[in-house]
Deep mutational scan, measured.
Amino acid sequence: HERALMVNRLQKLTRMLRVHPDPKWKQEQQELIKRLK
């Protein structure tokens, strides 16, 4: 369940980064990718 939330968050971040590349979001995205591996 928590994994699904993280995947959701990651997808949302990816969409937001396409619109507005924010370093903070980029960092969070990298963190999520690490944790999901």
Rank of each mutant, 00 (worst) to 15 (best):
H1F: 12
H1W: 14
H1P: 12
H1T: 14
E2P: 06
E2Y: 07
E2I: 12
E2A: 07
R3W: 14
R3T: 10
R3H: 10
R3P: 02
A4S: 10
A4M: 14
L5D: 07
L5Y: 09
L5R: 13
L5A: 13
M6R: 02
M6D: 04
M6Q: 03
M6S: 02
V7L: 10
V7T: 06
N8P: 00
N8E: 15
N8L: 15
R9M: 07
R9C: 05
R9D: 02
L10K: 00
L10C: 00
L10T: 01
L10S: 00
K12A: 15
K12N: 08
K12F: 15
K12Y: 15
L13S: 01
L13N: 01
L13A: 01
T14G: 04
T14N: 12
R15A: 13
R15N: 10
R15F: 08
M16L: 09
M16W: 12
M16A: 03
M16I: 07
L17I: 11
L17T: 01
L17S: 03
R18S: 08
R18A: 15
R18V: 05
V19Y: 14
V19G: 13
V19S: 11
V19E: 11
H20A: 05
H20V: 09
D22M: 05
D22R: 09
D22I: 05
P23Y: 04
K24N: 08
K24F: 05
W25G: 04
W25A: 06
W25L: 10
W25Y: 12
K26V: 10
K26E: 06
K26Q: 06
E28T: 02
E28G: 01
Q29W: 14
Q29I: 10
Q29S: 05
Q30I: 10
Q30V: 10
Q30P: 03
Q30S: 06
Q30K: 06
Q30C: 15
E31R: 08
E31I: 10
E31F: 07
E31G: 04
E31K: 07
L32N: 03
L32Y: 02
L32A: 00
I33A: 03
I33E: 04
K34G: 06
K34N: 10
K34M: 09
R35M: 05
R35Y: 06
R35D: 03
R35N: 08
L36S: 00
L36Y: 04
L36I: 07
K37P: 02
K37M: 14
K37H: 09
K37E: 07
K37W: 13
